[in-house]
Design a protein around this nucleic acid. Structure first.
Length: 320
DNA sequence: AAAGCGCGCAACCGCCTCCCA
DNA sequence: ATGGGAGGCGGTTGCGCGCTT
């Protein structure tokens, strides 16, 4: 036996709502509040299914809804949350006040998916699409590329499995130049300039690329051991930069006393935005392992390999 | 001007989850 | 513990509108 329908649809109206129906529903909800959706249509004088009334109210008539396209910031939030939560639209929507799950779902399917694909990122996995050209063998002169992204570790284990799917954020940065040449719409997706890239791991932070010349790894400006000692994150998850900060030239160094790192602004300190941070290292937090907001940041420093990725090779290679 | 086409979005469908008796 | 009802949720559909030919 099949499932019972949510209501008897005989004699019920379907399709787009009229202004009169909207008015009736709004008046009823504002007068009586939200209760027992099944009873709402009858009490409000509507020939609609209760579910239809609920949907109309939640997705369209609610007074606290924002209308219009998602802002750039909201879009970034959606992408980031989707990377963490998948297609759990209601969970994503709960992080975006005034936006509904339906709205975000629609926006994802019609806009964001296309943008990510255009960027060479799989909108499902948030990893680079497999159609990317095979990486050529890296050479020493490539190290002068402005797109080198470094993460640190003293570990020298091979990185084969980590290089197979470079982090999409890093990949995007490195493909910046190529995208411009490929008629990429630059104003659609905010880009992070190479000199603004910060180098860090969970606990330790390296100087920005702008301070690193082609021989940066041996520069006196940069000393890994000093970094290890001084750039220790004391209060994780407390102060992530806004997008503006992240993209601004002013935010191209790290203050060891006021640790700031991350991709998006975070108005909710308890959120697990550290995921972004870790993604920049090596997708370490792809697992569902829960991260407590009060977790002490003391990873094994040998866990992560120091990596180098050039714009041409797309490969991480060991620097040390 | 009109037909064709593609896109965006509101709305629907049906399964899932929660709550209560 | 269990079954049923109601709401919640994600996938899908289809209509309307604007653009192109």
């Amino acid at each position: 036996m099949g499932r019972q329908p949510c209501c008897d649809k005989v004699g019920l109206k379907q399709g787009p709502w009229t202004a009169d129906e909207d008015k009736k529903l709004i008046n009823f909800i504002l007068t009586n509040g939200q209760c027992c959706w099944r009873a709402v249509p009858k009490l409000a004088g509507l020939l609609r299914c209760g579910k239809s009334c609920r949907l109309r109210w939640i997705n369209y008539l609610r007074p606290d809804l924002k209308r219009g396209l998602l802002s750039e910031y909201e879009e970034k939030m959606v992408i980031d949350l989707h990377a963490q939560l998948g297609n759990r639209w209601s969970k994503i929507a709960s992080n975006l006040p005034g936006r509904t799950d339906n709205e975000i779902k629609n926006h994802w399917n019609t806009h964001i998916k296309k943008k990510l694909k255009k960027m060479g990122i799989d909108p499902v996995t948030h990893k680079p699409l497999p159609t990317l050209p095979p990486p050529p063998v890296p050479s020493a002169d490539k190290q002068s590329s402005p797109y080198r992204v470094l993460a640190q570790s003293v570990d020298k284990e091979p990185l084969a499995e980590k290089t197979e799917f470079p982090n999409p954020v890093i990949t995007k940065l490195a493909k910046d130049e190529q995208k411009q040449a490929d008629d990429f719409c630059m104003d659609e997706v905010p880009l992070i300039e190479p000199h603004e890239i910060l180098l860090f791991t969970e606990r330790n932070i390296l100087p920005p690329l702008s301070s690193l010349s082609s021989s940066a790894s041996t520069s006196s400006n940069f000393d890994v051991s000093t970094c290890n000692q001084n750039f220790v994150r004391k209060e994780p998850y407390q102060s992530f930069p806004s997008v503006d900060q992240w993209c601004s030239n002013a935010f191209n160094y790290v203050d060891c006393n006021n640790f700031d790192a991350g991709l998006w602004n975070n108005d909710s300190p308890n959120d697990k935005f550290i995921t972004n941070l870790d993604m920049l290292v090596n997708d370490q937090f792809e697992s569902d392992t829960p991260i407590e907001s009060d977790t002490t940041f003391a990873p094994d420093f040998t866990n992560y390999s120091r990596m180098l990725m050039s714009d041409d090779t797309w490969k991480f290679e060991q620097l040390l």
